[in-house]
Simulated assay, not measured.
Amino acid sequence: MTILVSNSGGTPPGAEWPQIRTVGIDGLLVSFGDRLSEPANRAALALRNAIERADWVGVEETSTSMVSTYLRFDPLWQGHAAMRASLRELLGQQDWFAAALPTGRRLWRIPTVYGTDLAPQLNEAAAVAGLSPEEAMVSISQSRVRVQTIGFAPGQPYLGELPPEWDIPRQTALTDKVPIGALTVAIRQIVLFSVSAPTGWRHVGQTAFSLFRPDDATPFVLRPGDEVLFEPTTAEELANMRASGPDGGATSEVLQ
């Protein structure tokens, strides 16, 4: 089922967004585009928040991807037709591409070492972006990026968007392994690694921030909609902050 609402930008001309699609016997997916854009990500975050605030009977779970909102419901309480009708009514209430972001989000400032042996691909990534290493560090560290979604590994965020010069491809070959807390870049996005893993994204910065804390009441520290600044620090300072605890020197404040 497809419905059309006002679109303030960020989706291909002539496309009909959002689209409501069935996911299995107990899920619906509302997509706001077929590619990442700031308005589509904003819409997905805002719609999920609105669904949770509405507290619909039978809804058991919600989540977001880059440009979509997913809800899982108990079909014994609400059938697909009734749930689609509720979604259509909610979607018609405003232009979701221009919706306000949810309240309660946080701004994180995460100390980051750029380059050196800790993040050995800064120079390579900078060259691909047409920047000097110093320009690359300034560009990334001064970009206030949004957590667009959590995925791939527990608590692992995809963040963006970076300035246009960072629309660089992934590597053609994988790096065997980057460490926990690695800051990597490609396609105008940042991935901050919650686990040690191979990747095709270039390793340009290193943090001491622990994203996944399975023994905590809130095991995923960052949440979709949070914003992050990766502020430069030195390797010596980072080592000291690593010893101070899982935040690795990071601080946060609530966004109004």
Rank of each mutant, 00 (worst) to 15 (best):
L47R: 00
L47E: 02
N49V: 00
A50T: 07
I51V: 14
I51F: 02
E52Q: 12
E52W: 01
E52R: 08
E52T: 03
R53Y: 00
D55R: 14
D55I: 01
W56D: 02
W56K: 01
V57I: 08
T62Y: 03
S63T: 07
T64A: 04
T64W: 00
T64S: 03
S65Q: 01
M66F: 14
M66I: 09
V67Y: 00
S68E: 05
T69H: 04
T69A: 05
Y70C: 00
Y70N: 00
Y70D: 00
L71T: 01
F73I: 01
D74W: 03
D74M: 04
P75T: 06
P75E: 03
P75R: 02
P75C: 08
L76I: 03
L76G: 01
L76R: 12
W77Q: 15
W77N: 05
Q78F: 00
H80C: 00
A81K: 07
A81V: 09
A82D: 13
A82F: 00
M83P: 04
M83F: 03
A85F: 01
S86K: 15
S86E: 12
L87K: 05
E89Y: 04
L90T: 08
L91I: 11
L91A: 09
G92P: 08
Q93C: 04
Q93H: 06
Q94M: 13
Q94R: 15
D95C: 12
W96K: 11
W96I: 07
F97C: 09
A98R: 13
A100C: 03
L101D: 05
L101H: 07
P102K: 10
P102R: 13
P102Q: 09
G104H: 11
G104A: 13
R105C: 14
R106W: 13
L107H: 15
R109M: 11
R109K: 15
R109Y: 06
R109A: 10
P111A: 12
T112Q: 07
T112P: 06
V113C: 12
V113I: 11
V113N: 06
Y114W: 10
Y114C: 11
G115P: 08
T116L: 11
T116N: 09
D117A: 15
A119H: 06
P120T: 09
L122V: 13
L122G: 12
E124L: 13
A125W: 09
A126T: 12
V128P: 05
V128E: 13
V128L: 15
V128M: 14
A129G: 14
L131E: 09
L131V: 07
S132P: 05
S132N: 08
